[in-house]
Amino acid sequence: MSLTINANLGGIENLLDELADNAEEAARPAAQAAAQVLYDAVKLNVASIGRVTGNLDRSIYQVYSRDDSAQGRATYHVSWNHKKAPHGWLVENGHLQKYKVYLGKDGKWYTDKKAPLPSPKHVGARPFVRPAQAQFPAALDAAVAELLKRINGGPP
């Protein structure tokens, strides 16, 4: 006994093409949703350090990377602007302080290279970017939720 089925799969092919197009268009919003979770975590970490001038907090950014992205793949960077807060690396990684520092009349901190400390002082790290990596699972969840919303035809 045999059974013959004739099926027009054109509708399924169109559906799969549409799903692929939706997934490609959803890559950037999904990546941004993940970046937002990490950005929020970094901002919270900076706030927990305490505020001296606020430059570090104002320097935190998230940005879409055209160079690291491609069709169907989006990349965002979350970090701090090194020009706005050059001390960010010292805060994130710790450092050895060799000279006295002082707060100028303009409200900025300065290093007095003419006044070395009697012995160098280790200033411990107060990381704010690295601990945000603990939020990777939540960032992935946010990306998946945004991707599914957009693939299923939800509002942009």
Rank of each mutant, 00 (worst) to 15 (best):
A139D: 01
Q133I: 03
L90M: 14
Q32V: 00
A115F: 08
L16K: 03
P29I: 01
Y102H: 07
R28F: 04
S48M: 10
V42M: 11
P155A: 13
L9Q: 05
E13V: 10
V37L: 01
F136I: 00
L103S: 00
L44H: 13
T111K: 12
R73D: 13
D112Q: 09
E18N: 14
R66T: 14
P156A: 09
A70D: 10
A125L: 06
H87A: 06
R150P: 02
Y99A: 05
P118W: 04
G124W: 04
P118D: 08
G104Q: 02
E92P: 04
H82R: 14
Y76R: 01
V78A: 09
A132L: 07
L15V: 04
P86M: 09
Q32A: 07
R51F: 11
A74N: 08
P29S: 06
K100A: 12
Y110P: 02
K121W: 03
A31P: 04
P127F: 01
L140Q: 00
Y61N: 14
H87S: 06
A26Y: 00
G10C: 03
A139I: 00
V46Y: 12
A27M: 05
H82Y: 13
A26W: 02
G72R: 03
W89I: 10
G54L: 07
Q36K: 14
Q97T: 09
P127T: 06
L15F: 08
G88E: 02
E24K: 12
A7M: 11
A26F: 03
L38W: 00
L96A: 11
V123F: 02
A26G: 07
A145G: 04
L96M: 14
A7I: 12
Y99I: 02
Q71I: 15
A33F: 02
Q36L: 08
A35Q: 03
A41F: 10
E25I: 00
A142E: 00
Y64M: 04
G104T: 04
N14D: 13
T53Y: 08
G107P: 05
N81E: 06
L147M: 09
R130Q: 13
P127I: 00
V123C: 03
A132T: 04
R51N: 15
N152W: 01
N55I: 04
L16V: 05
D68V: 12
M1N: 10
A125N: 07
R28E: 10
S2N: 08
A115G: 06
S2W: 07
L96N: 11
N22R: 15
D57Y: 15
A26N: 04
Q133R: 09
I49E: 15
A132G: 10
L103A: 01
N8W: 13
D68K: 15
S2Y: 08
I5R: 06
V123M: 06
K43G: 01
A31L: 12
P120M: 13
V37K: 07
L16E: 02
A115Q: 13
A74Y: 03
A33K: 01
V46W: 11
D106P: 08
A30Q: 06
P137N: 00
V37T: 05
A125H: 08
I60M: 06
R58W: 06
